[in-house]
Design a protein around this nucleic acid. Structure first.
Lengths: 241, 241
DNA sequence: CGGTATCCCCCGCGATACTG
DNA sequence: CAGTATCGCGGGGGATACCG
């Protein structure tokens, strides 16, 4: 793909690589510390193996990513070089801008597999019980094949599952997918949704009470949105109370 | 182009629009204060009218660009909305990163028409003579159809020409294109190149002496490059002196 | 000048299958 | 598990012509 814009301008040269489809999102996942090919696929459920492979290679060629043989077992570990790490501010800036100004989400933007991945990265394990805690999430308004997922914390190690992990469930979270994602993004208040019974917890009361502290929410949840960003609340249905 | 990544993640939503080809460069030109369709084409010599039109429309739909009827004559004026202006830090961050880490330039990246445009935006008119000053640039190692361009300052109003403007030339700058662009980007020192006679000025000595102060260089010239970024200087040819 | 409409080609990308 | 090879299509985008 020889020179694409005919400009020596540093913005143009940067855009050449950063503007390729998926590239920014691969970088974001690497910034989150994801290292393995399969984990990158889990972080980006809709990327194909071919695409991920291509992007990792072009990032490596451009000097943003380093690939080493995995010390244990097979495969490789991918990590950011200094050049790659220096893009953190740019990517986070894009995130902040997206939180404030990007278009409203559609249902298709809310792939529960990606939600599961990002939630399991932001569990507040210090607030959770020692031993094993199994959270089950059940969503209405989601595609049939991924209406449910599980997040398992075992003494500070958090894993996500698309299939039932086999262990007993400690707490189940039921919600409309859109509402939950809006709460996760900080566009709605999670405590308010829980109090209103629009996000429902099923399990021991002590765990129900503790749950809001387990979930750290999106890293950008605190950034105030400038656009409406959510469905109008049809509070009329509740007859004004 | 419904949802492209299946992610509600603000970075993904931002990338959807910012990742489209040319979009970042159109935004950059708008940040430079360019308002007219034709001027945007001059700033981005390799964009087609169709593409520019499409990008302006999608930026308008996404709420980053405002389009108003031109007060005088025909056509419109394009400008950034608040949402668009909030991307300045991101775009400048990409530029800083590009200056430090992006791939080396090829000859194809150095379209002289783009160089002319960006130079004419960064002339230090306060340091230039009152009245009219006509600068002529002649490059070796450039495509035949754009080896030369002119920059005309008339009492603080700077214009660029691809065709000879008709006025008498006050000062001519001759250089290899690559060397001049490297100096413009701050990868080489302009005074050093002038002193070494690799960038040559032709015209009254007083103007020759003043010239280095007329040219502000790329806005990113002061950002230190981490990669080599230029051809090896074959100083051997000068037999070690 | 200030754009749109149309055509058409190429290649980006997803899907599938395959391999070490 | 950790990717690579191959195929096929869809549409992004360049070129050209056209219009107000």
């Amino acid at each position: 793909m020889e020179s694409r814009y005919g400009q020596y301008c540093p913005v143009a040269l940067a855009t050449e690589i950063l503007g390729e489809r998926w590239t920014i999102l691969v970088l974001l996942a690497l910034m989150d510390g994801v290292e393995r090919f399969n984990d990158l696929q889990r972080a980006l459920p809709r990327i194909s193996a071919t695409m991920l492979s291509q992007r990792l290679r072009s990032l490596e060629n451009a000097g943003l990513v380093r690939k080493k043989k995995a010390p244990t077992g097979r495969g490789h570990e991918y990590s950011l070089t200094e050049a790659g790490r220096e893009l953190e501010d740019v990517v986070m800036g894009m995130g902040r801008w997206g939180q404030r100004w990007a278009r409203d989400m559609t249902l298709d933007d809310m792939d529960p597999r990606h939600l599961a991945w990002s939630m399991h990265l932001r569990m507040n394990v210090d607030a959770m019980p020692v031993g094993r805690t199994v959270l089950q999430f059940e969503f209405t308004g989601a595609p049939d094949d991924c209406k449910r997922f599980w997040i398992v914390n075992t003494n500070g190690t958090v894993e996500m599952c698309i299939e039932h992990p086999g262990f007993d469930v400690d707490l189940t979270v039921k919600s409309d997918l859109r509402r939950f994602v809006e709460a996760w993004r900080g566009i709605r208040s999670l405590p308010a949704e829980l109090a209103a019974g629009r996000i429902v917890l099923v399990g021991p009361p002590a765990l129900q009470r503790a749950f809001p502290d387990w979930v750290l929410l999106s890293a950008l949840a605190h950034v105030g949105r400038e656009r409406a960003g959510r469905e109008r609340t049809t509070s009329r249905r509740y007859h004004g109370t």
